[in-house]
């Protein structure tokens, strides 16, 4: 199946979604992985619902997620636990787009992604899968 006809599928809690972090935001200093401002909304600005674009591991890999950036090597990738995000009252919905079957929206964000609460909660469920500033990726 191609184009925009990818079926929307349920994502199990046990799965991860991948999220890109630009090198400008990577910190790697003690407990601090990256700057809290790294969480951004991407995608269709016309969408009425605030969402953060991620890739579902079922149809993507950390490397594929990195490669979707304008300059891939300038980006790291974190994995976020779907069950963890849902436990924070965020919703994780498969939302395929023509070019990216894995595309997944994290919804339930406040009107303003600058909200400090949601950023703290997102941090709790992140772990590096590609860290361009470390010699070995975890």
């Amino acid at each position: 199946m191609q184009g925009s006809n990818w079926p929307i599928e349920p994502i199990p809690n046990e799965h991860d979604v991948y999220f890109r972090v630009h090198k400008n935001y990577i910190v790697n200093d003690g407990p601090y992985m990256f700057k809290p401002r790294a969480f951004v909304e991407r995608g269709d600005k016309a969408d009425q619902h605030k969402s953060m674009s991620t890739n579902w591991e079922e149809y993507s890999t950390p490397e594929q997620t990195q490669s979707e950036a304008k300059i891939p090597m300038d980006n790291g990738v974190v994995a976020m636990s779907v069950g963890g995000l849902r436990s924070e009252n965020l919703t994780v919905n498969h939302a395929p787009i023509p070019t990216i079957r894995a595309h997944t929206d994290v919804n339930g964000l406040p009107d303003d992604i600058k909200d400090v609460e949601v950023r703290v909660k997102l941090f709790k469920h992140c772990r590096w899968v590609i860290n361009p500033e470390l010699s070995t990726n975890p």
Binding site: V27, Y32, K35, P36, R37, I113, K114, R119, V120, F123
Partner: peptide, 25 residues
């Protein structure tokens, strides 16, 4: 804490320890 550039000219103050995590904007 750690102090970082934030969104739209704001500044984030971030505490991340085993006991607690806090973000001040």
């Amino acid at each position: 804490p750690a102090i970082f550039d934030g969104y739209e000219g704001s500044i984030d103050i971030h505490w991340e320890t085993p006991q607690m995590r806090m973000l001040v904007n």
